[in-house]
Design a protein around this nucleic acid. Structure first.
Lengths: 219, 219
DNA sequence: TTGCCAAGTAATCGCCTGATGACTAACGGG
DNA sequence: CCCGTTAGTCATCAGGCGATTACTTGGCAA
């Protein structure tokens, strides 16, 4: 019953080809393609889970979005929980999209500006960190979540220049919290002008925050 | 799916007096006090909604927590949605607990440190802003949410000293997002050391953020 | 062609949940 | 003391959900 197939990585396909995969056959009936079905389910699930959360996402809706039979979710992912974990595993990480992780404060501010801007992640509908925050009630997921954000914090810390301050990690985690907060506020509240901010809009303020937080105003 | 085993820390009968309202009569049963019943329901509902969110909160559990019959929820609040709105209305606002809203940056940093620290809001179990973020799917609630956070942003802006910068509001809202993020990260992830930070721990970093964000380092 | 297995389908099942409506019992004015 | 008002109880209903099982269909190998 436990779903151990959290190991999907074939999601490089992205972009909404999900339903096209299924029913674009001219003669009417679909092809049998397990991999495509799996991908379509994962894509639909990721979108729903990210946008609506765990509880409000129904397997029937996911199956419908993917143009696939409900029972196939059980076949490929075992359960709703399994589907959720697979969706989680297939999602890009916060700051993971950058070709190279920023090494200094300026680069960090730039990366944050890009990833927290309004248009970013448009292909997912929402910032992927929101998916990470969705609560399935599973303890295993909570652990996964913690680890992901811890790693993010560690990366921020590294980019800050390894300050000797004893509260350096706390400061890095405050920056993580800021990122989470921006994503949440935009998604759940639509607070403007923050919700509409472009990378350029964010660059200045974020640089000020990063400079203020991560280092004494030394050179 | 399980209803109350999610983040259960033995809370079926939470701390606090909520049940005492109901059954503290020596002879066994306490009777017929509409106001007390209403209060008990509201208290229980606020705790569950804040901690578990809208969907995972069941009316049966709320009624049980309050030591009250399920049907009374309908009597006093009409529906689950009604109960949620009442709980929302009865919750303290972010930064609303301060005797007086901070007028300058130092006071703002101090207030934030206090309200974002680990122990704060212990009587609610979680930061009240989390209740505000809980999604009941109701459009009316979304509007209420937006207004509350907008007001918070405006207050922050005011405390910043009315900078002439055109992106002053954006900067204020970033501070709002930081507050939301800290609450969310602590509640949903337990990221440490942030989750355990005391007001003193937060004071330094937050002052740096506020100074960096809200004003040029001028005197 | 034939046979076999994987992919896909249809139909429920059992359970939980929010919502009711009819009933009972306490309180208090007269 | 009586009786109307109202707080509180009980039983149940209808709907939606995740899960599951028995079945059908398509495709490939021999």
């Amino acid at each position: 019953m436990s779903s151990d197939d959290v190991t999907d990585q074939g999601d490089g396909v992205t972009h909404q080809a999900q339903q096209a995969d299924q029913a674009d056959q001219p003669d009417g009936h679909r092809r049998r393609d397990a991999a495509a079905t799996r991908r379509a389910l994962l894509l639909a699930a990721r979108a729903r889970f990210t946008r609506l959360g765990y509880d409000r996402t129904t397997l029937r809706d996911v199956a419908a979005d993917a143009g696939v039979n409900l029972a196939l979710i059980k076949r490929y992912f075992g359960s709703k929980e399994g589907l959720f974990k697979a969706a989680l595993a297939s999602a890009p990480r916060f700051l993971g999209g950058e070709a190279e992780f920023p090494h200094d404060r300026a680069a960090l501010a730039g990366a944050l500006s890009r990833q927290l801007a309004a248009g970013a992640w448009a292909e997912f509908g929402e910032h992927p960190v929101l998916l990470l925050l969705r609560d399935s009630g599973d303890e295993q997921v909570a652990e996964l979540r913690r680890r992901a954000l811890e790693e993010f914090g560690r990366q921020v810390l590294e980019a800050s220049g390894a300050a000797p301050a004893p509260d350096a990690l706390l400061r890095a985690e405050l920056l993580v919290a800021l990122g989470v907060g921006v994503a949440v506020v935009r998604s759940a509240v639509g607070l403007r002008p923050l919700a509409d901010a472009t990378p350029d809009d964010l660059m200045g303020p974020l640089r000020d925050i990063v400079d203020g937080l991560l280092g004494p105003p030394s050179g």
